[in-house]
Design a protein around this nucleic acid. Structure first.
Lengths: 139, 139
DNA sequence: CAATAAACCTATCGTACAGATAGGAAATAT
DNA sequence: ATATTTCCTATCTGTACGATAGGTTTATTG
């Protein structure tokens, strides 16, 4: 289950991708457009800045901007930062202690296959894809 | 994230599938083999019985048995019972209130695609597949 | 009929984490 | 100087996961 943190992070990235050349965009504007609490969003953007996906500038005229082109961010990269883990089961999480049943477990391959599939899916979609494709296709 | 409930349920189904023609298998034996607390497992099996995936018989010589052939249970069916929801995001859960941003949301299609993919994956694997294929392939 | 073995039922509990809120400190512009 | 904005730290609440405990009903067996 993807948390609001990850979902909000993606929406912010798309929001910024839709404003190329506008320089630094203040959190306030993003939060208002996206209908997300400013304070909560702040904590999310902090981790994106810390990991170099965004640049933040303080003071008047400050805000946030992308550090690369939208096509250079994969969905996976963003979710990996904001989610605790993308692994579908605890025993596949990084740093998990080795399951004593791993050699006889009849379900382990099921989870490995799922994990692989999800990772590939998220790897294959960029912020640019979301900005271009998403939204109301149901016309 | 799949909970222990769903993971344990699958392991129990496979465990029973590996014992065809043994009649009713007591919870005690399953729990011991799988290394799971009896009491906890009990609550999981209850829901499987209630939904007709297993038959339970009380009293001496009682236990649990499959109600169909192992190839007639899909993984999805089992997980759907034990997991609260398989939807990757809250807005896709059944009975969720309609998101007011659903027509402009740039990420909704991303989640729909993921949900579809996961459902198809789980639909395509049966308990018989798990019993046959899983485990140590790394020989 | 008594004893035993098993599923069934109800209630409780601790812990962790998601989701959020609040208040202030530091930096940048005008 | 003042306004604006990110940055930092701390705190709070509800909820669901994961588990445990004790008792009740049903069936078999000697």
């Amino acid at each position: 289950m993807i948390s609001t943190k990850g979902r909000y992070a993606l929406r912010v990235m798309v929001d910024l991708a839709e404003r190329p050349g506008e320089g630094f965009v203040p959190l306030r504007d993003i939060a208002k457009r996206q209908g997300i609490s400013e304070k909560y969003l702040e904590s999310i953007l902090k981790s994106l800045v810390k990991n170099g996906l965004l640049r933040g500038l303080r003071g008047k005229g400050g805000g946030y901007k992308l550090t690369r082109g939208p096509e250079e961010y994969t969905v996976r990269e963003i979710l990996a930062l904001t989610e605790e883990s993308l692994a579908p089961v605890a025993c596949l999480e990084e740093g998990a202690e080795l399951c004593p049943r791993r050699d006889i477990c009849k379900t382990l391959d099921l989870w490995r296959g799922l994990y692989d599939m999800i990772n590939k899916y998220f790897d294959g979609i960029t912020v640019a894809d979301l900005a271009a494709g998403g939204g109301s296709r149901d016309i």
